[in-house]
Design a protein around this nucleic acid. Structure first.
Lengths: 212, 212
DNA sequence: TTTTAAATAGCGAAATAGGGTGAGTCTTTC
DNA sequence: GAAAGACTCACCCTATTTCGCTATTTAAAA
């Protein structure tokens, strides 16, 4: 029996969901609330496995509520539902700890299926939402793609790596078993290729451009 | 008519897919290949809208193939299918530019539905995969929150910021309209607070710990 | 009101970094 | 076999950084 708590400000929708989960096999509605004012109390007296959370609600919105629930009841999984298809919402919902994100045009069967999926450890989301998530993922993680080619040689990369680690020329020379002046020569070449004129600039560029 | 190219080393599966897409309404198989050796040629002579890509293939694997296709034919969407449920694969697939990721235990109808979703601009993925994506997302995004407190003062932060930009003490002094020796003093304090002993170390730490 | 911390500034010494020039070896490429 | 590039090293000179110590002013906190 999957216990579902419903957070939805629209009375008609709320009652529809309540009926849906109470009539479906394997589900039971643990509570249905129009807002999150009594959130923690509600979950205390009527524990649930999954919270079906509307984003747009008066007072505490669904994102804030998700954070609250995850703080106090980390075991409760939250399935976000929204009419919105907005990057910021999706991003915030994920960061808040939501386990799924579906749109409100989902069929009743789709809702049951999504809740089942969440309960099974999955993260159901409509393909459109998933696309946004992938895009956000790439945006936030992939600036590496823009890794320009500075055509540094193998040895130069090693020197730059050590430079980034805060090593002095002397330490780099020791680490690579070469002479101090050799390190200097490499550094000179690196600066020329990177179009910088100091170690701090080189390190900054190296990290931001993910050369190292 | 959605044109689907199939990349799958298993002969039986490959022929099954070919039959599936050729018999289904609105789909046509643009080609079925056991490996990616002739990848670019194949797509040139038999253009497609969507590539159904197996990950495990001899020679060029599905991830590499995805990168190749995205480089030469960015308009082609790639739907990854795999028996594997592995973080690294999923991560790499997303970074390579895949538009969807489904498991091989999907039903024939599920395949058709997934391809339809990709064509419509969505990113179908099984809930389990989606969960992994969300987890990866949080993992890779959360360290930002863990910004340690080095209790730098406002002025020290400004100096550090300029240091990260590769400015010299002289330039920093000019930028902040203070004396050269004042910059020296701030830098000394910054190094003490950050427990570093050189500009490169400070810059490296500042960027990685997202102090600036 | 006394204390504390931040920001300011100066001086001097030692260490490190940066720029220039030249040059030898080795491997790969033409 | 010559040319090109990577890696190596040396010497000279100057600029910058780093460290240590001292000290004043100002604003906030005890």
């Amino acid at each position: 029996m999957i216990r579902v708590a419903i957070f939805e400000d629209n009375k008609h929708l709320r009652e529809t969901f309540e009926f849906l989960f109470n009539s479906a096999d394997g589900f039971v509605c643990a509570g249905a609330y129009p807002d999150c004012s009594e959130l923690i109390n509600s979950l205390e007296t009527a524990p649930c496995d999954i919270a079906l959370m509307d984003i747009e609600m008066p007072g505490i919105n669904g994102i804030e509520a998700t954070k609250l629930i995850k703080t106090h009841y980390p075991a409760v999984n939250i399935l976000i539902q929204s009419v919105f298809f907005d990057d910021a919402y999706i991003f915030d919902a994920i960061c808040a700890g939501a386990s799924g994100y579906i749109l409100k045009n989902t069929t009743p069967d789709g809702y049951l299926e999504a809740v089942r999926n969440v309960d099974a450890g999955g993260s159901p989301m409509t393909p459109g939402i998933a696309r946004k998530v992938l895009d956000l993922f790439k945006q936030n993680l992939q600036p590496a793609t823009a890794a320009k080619d500075y055509s540094l040689t193998a040895q130069e990369k090693k020197v730059l790596q050590l430079l980034v680690e805060g090593k002095s020329y002397k330490m780099i020379a020791a680490a690579l078993s070469v002479a101090f002046d050799t390190v200097k020569a490499h550094v000179t070449n690196i600066y020329a290729k990177l179009h910088v004129h100091s170690g701090t600039e080189a390190v900054s560029l190296a990290i931001r451009e993910k050369i190292v």
